[in-house]
């Protein structure tokens, strides 16, 4: 399944970049996250609990940040297993400065699913993914606001 989108975040690139690579912030903003353990630089073990419509379950696995270009781009690699199937996703994120000291985040990538997750059908899964990314960025934005206050 293809994943893509754009978001505006009300903080400069350097700020957004720093926050995204901060495990404490990451744990706070990733939806459903129960536990995020650092396994060396940019590698995490993650446990999350997700419940949106029929997609409901505990996901366990790794999360890592690769191909970092300082403040410009990175690739987020998610490898999560659950009883209803597994997800492997690679999402490339581009950070671009935009007006008023804001940052535009563009993300594109592909998620490979197996088991029940795959069979749920593209329509539901893309809905789930867009809800999750919306929650992620909204939480990130909230963090940004709180940090800047």
């Amino acid at each position: 399944m293809k994943i893509s989108g754009t978001r505006q975040i009300g903080a400069p690139r350097s700020e957004v970049w720093k926050m995204l690579l901060d495990p404490v912030i990451l744990e706070k903003v990733t939806p459903g996250i129960k536990k995020l353990e650092s396994q060396g630089i940019d590698n995490y073990n993650a446990v999350s609990s997700i419940g949106i419509g029929p997609v409901r379950g505990v996901f366990e696995g790794t999360l890592s940040v690769k191909e970092k270009v300082q403040e410009e781009s990175c690739v987020l690699v998610v490898d999560q297993k659950s009883k209803m199937g597994n997800v492997i996703a690679e999402i490339r994120m581009l950070f671009m400065p935009s007006e008023g000291g804001k940052t535009q985040v563009e993300y594109t990538g592909e998620a490979k699913m197996s088991g029940t997750l795959a069979r749920m059908g593209q329509r539901i899964m893309s809905g789930v993914v867009s809800t999750l990314s919306k929650q992620f960025f909204e939480a990130l934005e909230k963090e940004v606001e709180e940090q800047t206050i």
Binding site: G115, R119, M120, G121
Partner: peptide
């Protein structure tokens, strides 16, 4: 079935 052999029409939604 997709290329990895996952069934993407596994319910009456699809």
């Amino acid at each position: 079935y997709d290329d990895s052999g996952q069934m993407i029409t596994g319910s009456y939604m699809d």
